[in-house]
Design a binder for these strands. Structure first.
Length: 300
DNA sequence: AACACCCCCTGTCGGC
DNA sequence: TGCCGACAGGGGGTGT
């Protein structure tokens, strides 16, 4: 499930149960997820108070009063469920997946925060809080797509001279941190940019962004904001921490819509599926042409 | 350096 | 109905 809007939605959902709360007990039900849990994981987390819950890219960061930060990544199929403290919210179908409940945080308040992850591509680490920015996982991370650093000039600098397709560059967490396969497809469509075009083709010789590249930051921001407002996308029954479903998946314009009519007004194209670096790309070949002709004169 | 490809793991879905 | 391959929101590692 988890790209930026989903991880941020999870963060907000966990806030009431975690922020300022003390972890009374931890159940770690297996030795590893994608990576082994850090040595002494249970002991280092038990009894700690959670000072705050932040997000960076697709990582959740719980700052503990021990001076360590619990770093959590949801991988492809990770999710959190909160229950116990506020009865009567929403009853999650928990039994079905209980085999994949790998970590349970029992809060002092009585709330239970359960991490479930069938594919186990997620992971948890403990890193001293002051060292986070220097840690291997974070030091190379790119800009936050909803932050002020993402603009046309930034993309022009990042894309200049690059032969990799635009899709691959937008997925590269070292450039922009937080986008995933869905929202890259959606943003490219909204901007009218071909996912197949070389990144460098969107930058003029002098290093200035083309009109097409200029539309991308706004398109990225718009689609992320809209997804956030919808509580993220709920694919494969994925739920928010309170058990509710995000509904942005109903607003996908291209993702997983191969063969459907392009939703761009006036466009008569049909959505295609392509494979780029082993992952599906969905796009409209008519309004996402390699040579952007949507604005400006269209001259070379 | 930059890019393409493989892999980790489980579940689900479509085709035969 | 059942079996089998393809594919899934991520990203680390390796080989060219």
């Amino acid at each position: 499930m988890p790209e930026l809007p989903e991880v941020e939605t999870v963060r907000r959902g966990l806030l009431p149960a975690l922020a300022g709360a003390r972890i009374a007990r931890v159940e770690q039900r297996r030795p590893d997820l994608r990576f082994p849990f850090p040595p002494g994981f249970v002991e280092r987390v038990t009894g700690r108070r959670v000072l705050g819950l932040r997000r960076r890219a697709k990582y959740l960061l719980a700052d503990l009063d021990s001076g360590e930060t619990l770093v959590m990544h949801l991988g492809m199929s990770g999710s959190f469920r909160v229950d116990g403290a506020t009865p009567g919210l929403f009853h999650h179908p928990r039994d079905k997946n209980a085999a994949h409940d790998h970590v349970v945080f029992h809060m002092e308040s009585g709330a239970r925060v359960t991490y479930n992850d069938p594919r186990r591509f997620g992971f948890m680490l403990l890193i001293p809080t002051p060292e986070l920015d220097r840690h291997k996982l974070f030091e190379g991370l790119g800009v936050e797509p909803l932050g002020p650093a993402l603009d046309a000039a930034f993309l022009a600098r990042a894309f200049r001279g690059r032969k990799a397709p635009t899709k691959a560059l937008l997925l590269d967490q070292r450039l922009i941190a937080g986008l995933g396969n869905i929202y890259v497809c959606e943003a490219l469509h909204r901007a009218g940019v071909s996912p197949l075009a070389a990144g460098g083709s969107l930058v003029k010789a002098a290093g200035a962004p083309t009109a097409a590249l200029g539309r991308l930051p706004g398109a990225i921001r718009e689609v992320l904001e809209a997804a956030l407002a919808a509580g993220g996308s709920s694919l494969r029954d994925h739920r928010q921490a309170d058990g509710s479903l995000g509904y942005f998946q109903h607003r996908f314009r291209v993702y997983d819509r191969e063969g459907a009519a392009c939703p761009t007004p006036g466009c008569h194209g049909a959505i295609l599926r392509a494979v780029q670096s082993g992952r599906s790309t969905f796009y409209c070949p008519d309004c996402q042409k390699p040579r952007p002709c949507r604005s400006g004169s269209g001259k070379p």
